[in-house]
Amino acid sequence: MDNSETGAGTNADGILAPAHTDWLRHVLTVAGPIADVAEFECRARGPSAVPWHLDLDHEELRLLAPMAAAGPAARGLALALRAQVEADHQRVLAAADQPGGGCPLDLHRLVPIPVRILQLGDDAPASRLWLWTHWGTLRPLRHVRRLDPVADRWRKRTVRVEWEFWSADWTPWRAIVQLRQDWPNLRFDVRPDYGDASDG
C-alpha cells in the first residue's frame, strides 16, 4: 500500500507512521507442543498497561494550560485531574508488578520495555524508537481476545491457539520476529485484516 494513500510518512524520529492512529485487526496463531503453548500463554498474559514514568508536575501544567482563561477555578480542576491521573498511574504500576492479568496477549510481558526506556516516558523520541524497533507498533495491543484452541488431529500432543487483537498502525511484526527466536518450538503466524480496519 502506498504511503501517500494512507497519509503515512517518516517522522523526524525515523518512524514510519500515519498522521492519525489507525487500528488494524489481526489474528495471531501459535502452534506447537501442548506444554510449550501452555507456557507461552502463561507468559503472554498481563495487564496490557505499560508502566511508563509519569512526570505529574508536567501533566498538571499540561492540563492547566488550556483552562488558564477560566481563572482561579481552573487551578482546582487541574489539581483534581492530576489526582485522577496519579491514581490511574498507580493502578498501572501495581498491575505491572503482578503476575498474570486481564489481557491474554501483552506485548510488554513478551518483549519487555527496558527500565531505562520506561524512565523516559512514552512520548520521548527514544521510547518511540524503541517501540518501533522492537515491537513494530507504538502502542500496546487493544481488544485482545483468545479464541478456542484447536487440537491437531494429525499430530498428537500438539495444539493451535489463536488470538484476535487490534494493533496501532502496523502489524507488530518485529515483536513476532523476536517471539520466533525466543520460542523455537512454536510456530507463529500473524494475519492482518486490512478490510475491517477501524478506529478502536
Score class of each variant (00 low, 15 high):
3 N>R: 14
7 G>F: 09
8 A>T: 15
10 T>R: 15
13 D>E: 15
13 D>F: 09
14 G>C: 08
15 I>L: 06
17 A>N: 10
17 A>K: 09
19 A>W: 04
20 H>C: 03
23 W>F: 11
24 L>H: 13
24 L>P: 01
24 L>R: 14
26 H>R: 07
33 P>F: 01
35 A>F: 03
35 A>T: 11
35 A>D: 14
36 D>E: 15
40 F>R: 03
42 C>S: 15
44 A>P: 12
45 R>P: 04
51 P>L: 00
56 L>Y: 12
58 H>T: 10
59 E>F: 03
60 E>I: 06
60 E>Y: 08
62 R>D: 12
63 L>M: 15
63 L>V: 11
63 L>E: 14
64 L>P: 02
65 A>P: 04
66 P>G: 11
67 M>G: 01
70 A>I: 05
71 G>C: 01
72 P>C: 03
72 P>G: 02
73 A>E: 13
74 A>F: 02
76 G>K: 08
77 L>K: 08
78 A>Y: 07
81 L>A: 13
84 Q>G: 05
86 E>V: 00
88 D>C: 04
93 L>N: 04
93 L>K: 04
94 A>R: 09
95 A>H: 05
96 A>N: 01
97 D>T: 08
99 P>G: 07
100 G>T: 09
101 G>I: 08
102 G>K: 08
102 G>A: 11
103 C>Y: 01
104 P>I: 00
104 P>N: 02
105 L>S: 05
114 P>V: 00
115 V>G: 06
117 I>Q: 06
117 I>L: 07
123 D>Q: 12
123 D>C: 01
124 A>R: 02
128 R>T: 05
129 L>V: 12
130 W>L: 00
130 W>R: 04
136 G>W: 00
137 T>G: 09
139 R>Q: 11
140 P>E: 09
140 P>I: 01
141 L>H: 12
142 R>C: 10
145 R>K: 13
146 R>G: 00
147 L>P: 08
148 D>S: 12
154 W>C: 07
156 K>D: 13
158 T>F: 05
169 D>F: 03
171 T>E: 12
173 W>N: 09
180 R>M: 11
182 D>L: 14
184 P>L: 06
194 Y>W: 15
195 G>I: 03
196 D>L: 08
198 S>W: 08
200 G>V: 00
